[in-house]
């Protein structure tokens, strides 16, 4: 297990280094740079040259990359030109905002999707399962881009909830409550399609498990149905669902990008967008690297969790390594 973890960690580091390096080089090669964008066409060529020299943009790509990479090894990721702050300070702040959304959405999806999936999976007929199934199919067809537009539309029409940002600009009495109110729309936007995904998976796993001999045997011995379903069968049916979490991490990150932009949530995705638009190369490299890290760590965490639920998973992994 330790060896497996070490390998995964090394792979994550390589991934982060590659992604941030490539985006650094791409952003540097892109037409236009930060100075041309901010000073505009009216600045004298003298002023532009001075500004470029101050920011280190006058050096060649190779030199610039070498300096940046050398500094990055010492965990100094450069200074954002857009915010005039170290990238290493800026990114954790924004990444934390994205992580809040992602975790809340994942928790919501699990709490809502899994129990509903058990209900629909154990009862193939009936009004309630039918409604849940229908709602799931509809929500599965609404990626976060659409759910967030729909929720913002509802919130704007009714005026019940704030539709943009993370905090009220006027300042609220209770900071936590204020944050929670602002979170509802983006969290639901990401969480609803995920909940539908989990519901469908859980329902399928459940309906397959329920027909298996050990479940039938438990019922035959006279165990109450609720106990059989919620204790016995659930344990077995959780495995395929747990395997899904690894895939969902990627969905979370790209889904949160659209949601962050639409609801003006100050997260990693909207920061990346700003950085790309301003040609803030250090910030671009930092955001891309942080996104890759988020994904790599998330996938790793879900694989470890899966290995705990289902010991066969890690065995299979080590067999694959040996092969």
């Amino acid at each position: 297990m330790t060896r497996y973890l070490a390998r995964r960690l090394a792979f994550a580091l390589v991934l982060v280094a590659t992604v941030s390096s490539v985006s650094f080089v791409l952003a540097r090669l892109a037409p236009g740079d930060f100075v041309a964008g901010t000073l505009g066409a009216h600045a004298s060529s003298d002023a532009i040259a001075r500004e470029r020299a101050r920011l280190g943009l006058d050096k060649s790509l190779a030199v610039q990359y070498r300096d940046w990479a050398a500094a990055a090894l010492r965990l100094d990721f450069g200074r954002s030109m857009l915010y005039d702050r170290p990238v290493g300070d800026l990114i954790p702040e924004r990444a934390a905002n994205t992580a809040i959304l992602a975790f809340a959405a994942l928790a919501f999806a699990t709490v809502v999707g899994v129990p509903l999936g058990i209900v629909t999976g154990t009862r193939p007929r009936g009004v309630l399962p039918g409604i849940i199934r229908g709602a799931s199919v509809v929500l599965l067809s609404m990626p976060p881009l659409l759910t967030s537009l729909m929720l913002v539309f509802i919130a704007a029409r009714t005026g019940w909830l704030p539709i943009a940002g993370m905090r009220s600009s006027t300042g609220a009495d209770n900071a936590v409550l204020d944050l929670l109110r602002h979170m509802i729309v983006p969290v639901l936007a990401i969480g609803l399609p995920l909940a539908a995904t989990l519901e469908r998976l859980q329902a399928q796993a459940m309906s397959e498990t329920i027909g298996q001999p050990f479940v039938v045997a438990a019922s035959a011995r006279g165990l109450p149905r609720a106990r059989v379903v919620w204790r016995g069968a659930l344990k077995a049916a959780l495995r395929p669902v747990a395997a899904m979490y690894g895939l969902m991490i990627g969905t979370l990150l790209s889904g949160s990008f659209a949601v962050e932009v639409i609801t003006a949530w100050p997260g990693l995705g909207s920061l990346m967008l700003q950085a790309l638009r301003a040609r803030d190369i250090y910030l671009v490299a930092g955001c891309a690297g942080a996104g890759a890290l988020f994904l790599a760590l998330g996938t790793m965490a879900s694989d470890v969790a899966l290995a705990m639920v289902d010991p066969r998973a890690s065995e299979r992994e080590s067999h694959a390594e040996a092969a």
Binding site: L26, L253, L276, C287
Partner: peptide, 15 residues
């Protein structure tokens, strides 16, 4: 395992 949306953004934005 690449963050797909970020990669698509970066690739498009640099052109």
């Amino acid at each position: 395992v690449l963050p797909a949306m970020y990669v698509a953004l970066a690739l498009r934005a640099v052109l």
